[in-house]
Design a protein around this nucleic acid. Structure first.
Lengths: 310, 310
DNA sequence: CCTGTTATACTCAGAGTGAGCATAATAGGA
DNA sequence: TCCTATTATGCTCACTCTGAGTATAACAGG
């Protein structure tokens, strides 16, 4: 069990889920007409994985990456292995970048999250696609199970991940995997499933749609306890814009007044002093992110009933 | 940007942070008299990384792994690279396993968390090591900075991560990294720092102490929103034992009555019906983990002010 | 039967959160 | 000019959650 000198050739590949908000839609950078996430080899002359990724992305997009976070490392993929004989290890990252085009102009390569996961967008109310198509078909899948135990387990998993009365927007990956298991979405490069009529939502090549699901899920979880939305916002913004940004990522509507209360009382923003009348109604105050907050506080998050708080 | 066939030889290595509770101490499995985490090559004949890790750990420890989670993938390490010329990518995992020895007998290889991070143990009150040794030296390090801006930034980072009036037990890694930056802990295989008199706490070889810090941090965060403690508990336990387990991991004391309330009202446990008198005082009811809960509910966690929850 | 120890039940105040009412300030059209 | 629609902003209220503590129960050992 000493440090190993491995027996089999291996290739390292980096995958990036690059997110930007373009015109209040959450978008991800793709290649090949939306079928691929950007990916490339890890070049050994970079000191770390993260600097390698940054350099490579910034060279490709001519744009600085605001925030980068490692998502997951997969090695369980057939992919090119069959042909080359090499083991491919793929390390995926989530990166956030600021919008840089006019909201009107359509950037090539950027695609909405919800092109791939239409059932994840609840901003206009409970997803009709879910109620009319997905849930019935998942119900059928559950009923198809022969053993009662498996049937019960399937039903329960569907209920937990897709329950529309207690929708949990973080379960993007679990929902995708359940749909995959049920044969409702296709996925290349994995053990074949009997996919009949796939559910709406674009597929991607290889496991890139799964990686995207992982990235969206991580991002949806993260915005709740770290101020990462601001990496996607312009320097100045109104609270309404900020709210619509969060709504776009989370895929659901928020209570306006309570959202303001939360943002303000946490000291995340400060007024610039200016107003903007471009919002359609009463002019709104402009705010900017208080970067100092990153130094002032660490993460939040406690759920332990602590004793003697001094 | 097509899937890559890399130019440089690479070796994949797996590292495991294997945790067990032995006699109410949180312990990690080590080799070489505590200097190494178990690590080994990823053998290409396993379909996935996780199954590879499981098989390998269970072969080494003759013991099933209850819970496994990927921690992080590093490639930024000099290590054996200098000698072999190969790039080493190390994928680390956190694994939880059940105690299997009598509390008295000392298992070889298992070491307490707090042998490596003594300042992380607040179970007997605020760490004296912190107040008497670490904080003064970190203060000195801050003051050494020439530029006022850097001085201020150092002070603020120390305040956020080490603040003993609002101790955040999750910041294990941030604290370790700060100590490393300040030259207060040694670390092999990294750019040398002028380490004078190191702060108490055992070092490890390579970057294993850093990986351990990552694992402890992840575990401390996880116990707050997922019922993973039970992976470390015997089948039947009292609420007092459960509390001391959580305290051991979190490194701090909890309010007993509120801890019970939390555990009970979340439906995490059920009474077995039996009592045990081995706790020293009034006999305690025995409980067991309600595995069904894993199917009944997904994660918790919302901090968004949702609209119309109808 | 007193003392120390752990277990268990219950209460209470304050903070945080979901939900909604009310008002302000703009644009555009009747 | 004055409605109306729209967005922004301020404030209240009830309910739940959580920290903190009081009180009582049930054992062991001297």
């Amino acid at each position: 069990m000493s440090p190993a000198v491995g027996p089999r050739p291996v290739t390292i590949e980096l995958n990036a889920v690059l997110v930007a908000l373009i015109g209040e839609e959450p978008q991800v950078l793709t290649l090949q007409d939306g079928a691929l996430l950007p990916s490339g080899p890890f070049e050994g002359d970079h000191p770390t994985l993260q600097t390698g990724l940054r350099a490579w992305v910034e060279r490709q997009t001519h744009h600085p990456l605001g925030y980068v976070e490692q998502l997951y490392t997969f090695a369980d993929r057939s992919r090119a292995e069959a042909t080359t004989g090499r083991r491919i290890v793929s390390i995926s990252y989530l990166g956030l970048t600021r919008e840089r085009v006019a909201a009107g102009k359509r950037e090539p390569g950027w695609q909405s999250f919800y092109r791939y996961f239409p059932w994840e967008d609840w901003r206009t109310g409970p997803s009709k696609l879910l109620a009319h198509t997905i849930l019935p078909r998942l119900g059928k899948w559950s009923d198809e199970a022969r053993e009662p135990a498996i049937k019960r387990e399937r039903r329960q998993r569907v209920a937990v991940t897709f329950d529309d009365s207690a929708w949990n927007e973080e379960l993007v990956l679990q929902r995708y995997e359940l749909l995959y298991e049920a044969g409702l979405v296709p996925e290349a490069g994995r053990p074949k499933r009997p996919v009949g009529d796939p559910v709406p939502g674009e597929p991607m090549s290889y496991d890139h749609r799964r990686i995207l699901a992982t990235g969206i899920a991580r991002l949806r979880a993260k915005i709740k306890y770290r101020p990462v939305v601001f990496e996607l916002m312009p320097p100045d913004f109104t609270l309404g814009q900020l709210q619509r940004a969060v709504e776009a990522l989370a895929g659901r509507r928020l209570h306006k007044q309570n959202f303001r209360r939360l943002v303000e009382q946490q000291g995340l923003v400060e007024e610039t002093g200016a107003l903007t009348a471009e919002t359609g109604g009463r002019p709104a105050k402009l705010y900017r992110f208080r970067r100092e907050i990153l130094l002032e506080r660490a993460v939040a998050g406690t759920k332990l009933p602590l004793a003697r708080s001094a």
